[in-house]
Design a protein around this nucleic acid. Structure first.
Lengths: 119, 119
DNA sequence: CGGGATCCGCGTAGATACTG
DNA sequence: CAGTATCTACGCGGATCCCG
């Protein structure tokens, strides 16, 4: 298995408070971060589709989560000045790369969730 | 890239509120969950070592996070009735499996954190 | 040393209502 | 449709005290 020492070398890491790595980790593992990113992995989604896909998220948290990821350069927001308004969200290349790195974790959880919860 | 449809099939998923998958995802992506699991990837650690490794965690949150993972069957707690007391924490086989699934994500974040924070 | 129990304050999530 | 504004509630963290 890949050891932490190999992952991090000798630099400050996510284990160090205030390290940039910790900041990014907090964004990604924020309450709705993983689900929003995973939802966008399937392709571009509109605000309303995103809200329906990520079941249970409030509008406030969806807006906040998306704003964070747009600022991080992981998500693109495309607002069209039509009536009614239409706003599309999609992953940037960087965002797609991140979701690929997340997919083993998502797969593992999907496969083992029942065993963990039902013990 | 692996699509969500492939990951989840047609079952209820982490996207569905109340699904077991969502519960496990919440545990793992809880504020300190990833860091505690990653710390234990290196091997068995004592309470104090864990507290020092995961910089910034409070004793209360460390205890709560560990209790959750022990209940989930991801972490083993080994308390020895010596004076002074010694309590070791380590990953179960299931926990080790999970950390392996997490390692691409941790590696990606370590590699890209600076680029994201400094934009 | 390794916790558990409790109280308390603050920030952030959530629900609801309103707007362009 | 796609948000923002406002209010409330709870999770998280700090501090303290205690115990085996």
């Amino acid at each position: 298995m890949l050891s932490l020492r190999e992952i991090r070398g000798d630099e400050p890491t996510a284990f160090t408070d205030g390290c940039p790595t910790r900041v990014v980790l907090d964004h990604v593992t924020s309450k709705w971060g993983v689900l929003v990113l995973a939802a966008l992995a399937e392709g571009t989604l509109r605000w309303g589709e995103l809200r329906r896909t990520v079941d249970g998220i409030s509008e406030k948290m969806l807006a906040a989560t998306l704003r964070t990821f747009v600022a991080d350069g992981l998500v693109v927001r495309d607002a069209q000045a039509t009536i009614p308004p239409r706003v599309d969200y999609s992953l940037t290349p960087l965002g797609r790369d991140l979701v690929e790195a997340m997919s083993p974790l998502l797969g593992w959880i999907a496969a083992h969730a029942d065993a963990i919860v039902n013990d």
